[in-house]
């Protein structure tokens, strides 16, 4: 205790690293941060870049992350890596895309309903027409 902490690097699609570490360096948005055990709790965003991990009795390991979140607790450090490339504008664009597609479908559906209604009216009208013609024939 005290000289190592537990490090987890996970992304939504898989667990990238899980094990003890003595020291890590991560690319936080405000600049690189180095974290030793018993660090005070911290929560920050990280940029895309390399996380350097010093595991006990092993060489340094380098893990690439494409951005995400870093949570630091005295004995546990968690890096939540993003799998997707993120950005405010990019997310916004994706949301708009999803919305637009949905609206398109709703619109199509309405036109379908309208089409069905028009068809029903047409059938009714032709039936009326036929009945009138029949009546005329009979009555001259």
């Amino acid at each position: 205790m005290g000289t190592i902490f537990h490090l987890d690097i996970v992304s939504a699609e898989e667990s990238i690293y899980s094990g003890p570490a003595e020291f890590i360096v991560a690319p936080a948005v405000m600049g690189e941060v180095g974290i030793f055990p018993q660090h005070t709790p911290m929560l920050t965003r990280i940029k895309s870049g390399v996380v350097r991990v010093k595991a006990p009795l092993q060489d340094d390991e380098e893990v690439y992350v494409s951005g995400g979140m870093l949570e630091v607790q005295p004995d546990v450090v968690t890096i939540l890596a993003d799998t997707a490339v993120r950005g405010k504008d990019l997310d916004e664009a994706k949301a708009l895309e999803a919305k637009r597609k949905a609206e398109e479908i709703m619109k199509n559906k309405i036109s379908e309903i309208e089409y069905a209604r028009a068809q029903a009216e047409l059938i009714e009208a032709t039936a009326q027409l036929a009945a009138i013609q029949k009546l005329r024939k009979r009555g001259h």
């Binding site: 936080a28 948005v29 405000m30 005070t40 709790p41 911290m42 929560l43 920050t44 965003r45 949570e71």
Partner: peptide
Amino acid sequence: PWDYIYEP
């Protein structure tokens, strides 16, 4: 009572 250091 504790809280995180938030960056930024």
